[in-house]
Design a protein around this nucleic acid. Structure first.
Lengths: 211, 211, 211, 211
DNA sequence: GATGAATGAGCGTTCATTCAT
DNA sequence: AATGAATGAACGCTCATTCAT
């Protein structure tokens, strides 16, 4: 309660904003979006509730910042893996695994990034949204490099990237929402699903007529 | 509880229970289940809050009922298609398409079924849980019939069914949460993704070593 | 839920009123006044909530009836003991012990009878109130018989009876409200307090000047 | 918390905490503590419900604070009288009269202290409980000094103190709950009852056999 | 730059009561 | 005589937000 004590709890006195984000991120991962409470964040940081409002217009902005941070993180991870070299196949596969790892390591984070509702989505600022979309573009490039012959146009690349992402998201979200049947080996499930998704992306031709 | 009562789907005073379920379902998909408020449901229905408690012991029971309803509906659809006959391939494909159709046609049901939190999941009654699992069992049977040579054990069938489901879920949820890039042809996206998912289910071997 | 079942649970079909009173009394003793709920009473009886309103105008009337019943019971007990004969001292002492026993045996009952608030008291019907007061009159008679020389007037008898009652009430309420120090032998406490109260009633002269 | 703050007894915006306590105390005595409602307290104070939670963790803490306050007040009064000197008889008698005066002058405090339910009592914090017990200890000391020959052990002292207290409580509660018959002279009643109680404490021997 | 005090709206839930049938 | 359906008011409590200092 004393000033001294507060100083001890607060990571960097000059950057309360960072401290708030850190605390919020942790709480988000631990408790989920709905239980992310300004009060708790302030307690964790060691500052007053109203101080948070000096740096964030409200809870929405705080959450949006975290989301943006999440997209940025994922973008950087994807970037690094892309630039690390190797065959296109190896790179794409690495990215797929990294995606699943990312989602499973930060389930609640993942949830706000990819499972948030259209309602909340509507309030997500346009510029942040544009940045988030870069992730898809990057994956589309990877897909194009991976299967150039089946992806003639940029459009095709985006379709296939989305399809791939759909599966990856499926993997993560089934596990996160605890709907993976017990008795199913998680690793085999992940590996197998990634493999057939990659195979599908390369070979299946979207424009083929229905049988 | 009788068939007659269930038929009266329209929110009329004759069947408040149904009306509550309808309103709750809608609100659930609009706001996300964490924001599902008994007050809002009551307002939407046009009844008092306490009236809801005449038919549901609490918020949990209401949500669980909705979930069960969704699983039941999907189970019936899946059953019908399964029993309709045809080659295993045709049946499985029909089920996949039906899944996507089901999700897109009833986003409310869909989100309830697959996007609820593990939190609430923990309190999901055992008997309802067992019923929900029948869906997976059914799809596992279809998968086994579809690719008997690559699915030696029941366990394998469940893994592959889950993998397939992950992709289907990915398709639906990308579209539902409005994250499908504009400019991507939806039908091509759906058809293509289903096709490669089916191909993967048949051929890729989960225990094969990484390339 | 069926009519047959309800019949089994209901003591006397012809006398729902009695059944309600029985159930309410039990619940009152078990749960206390505030937790006496019409719903629970109805459940215990096996009738519908609204049926209770056929016999009682509301919760107040139900409670008032119970209170009256309590006063009546105590009056009858007091009466019996009084008429049983014996020396006035023995009779008064027996009444004192019976009072404490009564209070301790039915703590919640006792509470509504003697510890209810002026607020609730205000709604207590006049005629019932008059009947309740007979208890004091009876005790005043006993006191007069017990110590005729120190109780010249009826007024004096009532004062002393009230004083005696005050102590008895003190005994019961200290125990009931769980404020009797652990480590104090309850029997010794009760016996001792009754004895000195009786002694005081006989000898001390209220009109003596303060030292 | 400072002395200055405590002095500001009037419900002013400068000390909402005190105002809340005042209002709660009043409501408690008017309505009974089971009916003590945070809403009503807030209304009486003129603040919002949530403001109460700034100073009290919940209803329990609020009630417990009130109880502790009452015990403390009475303890201080008792202390002062004890230390003022005089013969043991005079001191004990003074304390008895002060008790009744205290109860009649502050019915709010009084009811809180002695009429709360065992229910709530079970949650009464240990440290507050210990403080409350000092009152009994103090009176036990007075009793021992007053009648040393009949109170050989500390245990006896506590029994007799409790017995005395029972009567005092009886006096106060009969008056407070408006059950003292009209036409009974209040002063004579109080004086007389105190006198016989004191006499009883000195002479009657709890272990004596029943006559 | 930071805060303590305060709030209003909302939460899930319970309850006594009413009334058409 | 009895009920099922419905309600409005109240409950304790939490939350994001504001604002004077």
């Amino acid at each position: 309660m004393t000033a001294a004590r507060r100083e001890a709890q607060r990571p960097r006195e000059t950057d309360l904003r960072t401290a708030v984000l850190d605390a919020a991120r942790q709480q988000l991962v631990r408790e989920g979006y709905r239980d992310l409470s300004m009060r708790d964040v302030a307690n964790a940081v060691g500052c007053s509730v109203s101080s948070i409002y000096l740096y964030f217009a409200g809870k929405d902005e705080l959450v949006h910042t975290l989301m943006d941070e999440g997209f940025e993180r994922w973008y950087r991870t994807q970037m690094e893996l892309t630039e690390r070299g190797g065959t296109p196949a190896a790179r794409l596969e690495a990215v797929c695994r990294a995606y699943v790892d990312f989602g499973l390591a930060n389930p609640e984070f993942y949830e706000i990034m990819f499972m948030f509702h259209s309602d909340r989505m509507a309030r997500y600022p346009k510029d942040l949204f544009r940045r988030a979309r870069r992730n898809l573009e990057l994956m589309a490039q990877l897909v194009q490099a991976y299967a150039p012959e089946s992806v003639p146009t940029e459009d095709d690349a985006r379709i296939r990237a989305t399809a791939l992402w759909a599966t990856l998201h499926g993997i993560v979200s089934t596990i996160i929402s605890d709907r993976l049947d017990r008795g199913i080996d998680r690793t085999r499930y992940i590996e197998g699903t990634i493999r057939y998704a990659l195979a599908g992306v390369r070979h299946a031709s979207p424009e083929a007529p229905r049988p």
